[in-house]
Design a protein around this nucleic acid. Structure first.
Lengths: 343, 343
DNA sequence: GTTAGCACTCATCTGAGTCGAGTGCTAACG
DNA sequence: CGTTAGCACTCGACTCAGATGAGTGCTAAC
């Protein structure tokens, strides 16, 4: 669709604009060593590229900036893959050399590393509990009215929540039920837990246990795995350093969105079967506030099952090549590490 | 030290400036219904107040703004206490009416309520685990090399961490030790846990258990209660709406500090024996970035022991009366609620 | 002690003028 | 025919002078 020369010029413009944040003119492109054409020729091509929708002009007599379509083309066809990878390997690998033993810590730390390395905002989605299975369930009375329910998953994650004990039920009965649950529901995936509770155990419990109703109600809240995924943000303020967000009002909307966990969850939830690294440019994000932002995401997984995702949010004028390289490495390494832990 | 009239004028100026964010002139003070003096008189008094250090002039021929000393005087002597309390009671009480059963949820929710009500940034320090005692300890093997250590405190908080199992130690030995720990260390305050482990159990274990060294090392990391207090932030972006922070660079420094958990911990850690509500104005905060901010904090407690604190960060030009009122009520109610839960 | 009057200060706003980067178009060149 | 030089034109960004007005300090009168 595009000629070689057009591709070359588009590439040059995007590169220039990424590093300068200013509309780039024909002369500055022409002056680059690798471009053997005069400004006039570049201008002609630029006019064509604009007509095709790859470039935009803020106003007549300003240089050109890439349009969303231009960025898209750049990301899909022009990003120099290999070169970027190697440069950052060192930093990432030393990160994994530090011994961290809790998954949560790793994710949190990774978020920081990412935002520091890129100077953008990193958004990490903690491992999803949903698809892991039950390792151990426990109900620990605190006083005569409340108890802590503890769920340990096969990946070693611990969920806990406080529940009220119905006054009619005795401690010994609770113990009986908990033992029953542990023997019958062990290794059942969390998302099947509740249905299995009713189908497999319902009858048996109804026979042996008094106050079936109240007990079930309590277990229901106790096992409510809530599917709560943790979101880790880091470097949100890096947004403020980008010249395109020097206007406080615009950045306010962005940062406000970043405080809304549900929005982030939705944005970051892994697309099943999607490619390894996803790039959403400008309006491809659902939120108007992100019209001038790009979100690059990758997923990490265990046993081929996507567990969570890591992402970088920055201006549309973003160092795509570098960020995509870094995310690629980090997601692969995270996946490898998880596989090693929970083989 | 100040005459009644000076106090009245200082009060009027602070009030005006709080709501307008612009230097206030003599005429606008004079026009207020409750002030019966001409602009010229006000001017004379203002000149005196400036000389005393309570007011400042951004430049000649601008109105006056309160100095830090002025705010301090206002907070210490002029804040209209009672009036503020009643207005907000409704909202806060309905917050407590919602049934939330996990402490963490309550704190997080409270942070949101606070920032929404005040339009400032709220910083909450989660309940300190440090002074609570051990209710239950458990070591749950995940595979042959790793286990999850779970600590349940007397207040129902659950801490967990992953540990490596030394290869020399058998499962049955671990069970023995855990049982021993539960019987001997129950109700021991967390901060005494490690010392008691060595003094009370050291000998006994050394006798019964092989591989004492490795085992102790594992328990040491397992019981490392780490004293990790959770910080909850909400409404950080409200800073951006304040006219004094329309400059991106200034606000960047502030938001950067807000991302540093250790800094926040230090700022928010309760002053033992301090008064119920603390106000730190401008440079009274240790960090230069907060020179134009005020931090108002209150603590909540259990059994007279300060557990955590709640705070509001805003510009020095802050609605002190309202915020102090709200914090006062909320901290009292949190304290009451905790007392009710863990009587 | 209080107030009116007045000269003075100084940040902010406005509009005109200048500058320069960059364009589009036309014509000439190889 | 593709490429390039030349030139008029556009338009945001910057600068500077003048106008505006809110607010002060001081003095003198009430």
């Amino acid at each position: 669709m595009l000629t070689d020369r057009q591709r070359m010029i588009l590439n040059a413009i995007v590169d220039d604009y990424i590093s300068s944040a200013e509309p780039v003119g024909s002369r500055s492109i022409s002056k680059r060593g690798d471009v053997g054409y005069s400004p006039a020729t570049i201008r002609n091509e630029m006019a064509d590229l604009e007509e095709l929708g790859y470039l935009e002009q803020p106003h007549t007599s300003a240089g050109r900036i890439p349009s969303h379509k231009g960025y898209r083309y750049y990301v899909d066809h022009l990003v120099p893959w290999n070169s970027a990878e190697i440069a950052e390997m060192g930093t990432i690998r030393t990160f994994f050399a530090e011994k961290l033993n809790a998954t949560e810590q790793v994710i949190q730390h990774a978020a920081m590393i990412l935002s520091n390395m890129t100077n953008y905002t990193s958004i990490l989605l903690g491992p999803e509990v949903f698809h892991t299975s039950l390792r151990h369930f426990q109900l620990l009375p605190l006083d005569d009215k409340t108890a802590v329910a503890i769920i340990v998953t096969s990946t070693g994650q611990v969920e806990n929540r406080t529940v009220n004990i119905p006054p009619e039920i005795s401690i010994s009965e609770i113990e009986k039920v908990v033992n029953l649950l542990n023997s019958k529901l062990k290794n059942v995936p969390l998302y099947k837990l509740k249905t299995q509770l009713y189908t497999e155990l319902g009858q048996e419990m109804q026979r042996h246990i008094s106050h079936y109703e109240e007990l079930m109600k309590m277990l229901d809240t106790a096992l409510d795995s809530e599917n709560e995924q943790r979101i880790y943000l880091s470097g949100a303020t890096n947004m403020l350093t980008q010249p395109e967000f020097k206007d406080v009002d615009k950045v306010k909307h962005i940062l406000d969105l970043l405080e809304e966990t549900p929005t982030l969850l939705k944005m970051m939830s892994p697309v099943p079967g999607g490619p390894g690294i996803q790039v959403r440019i400008g309006t491809e994000n659902d939120h108007e506030a992100f019209a001038n932002c790009s979100l690059i995401t990758a997923t990490y997984s265990l046993d081929g099952q996507a567990l969570g995702s890591i992402g970088i949010l920055g201006p549309t004028r973003m160092e795509y090549a570098r960020v995509m390289g870094i995310l690629g490495i980090l997601s692969r390494d995270l996946t490898a590490m998880l596989a090693h832990w929970y083989k």
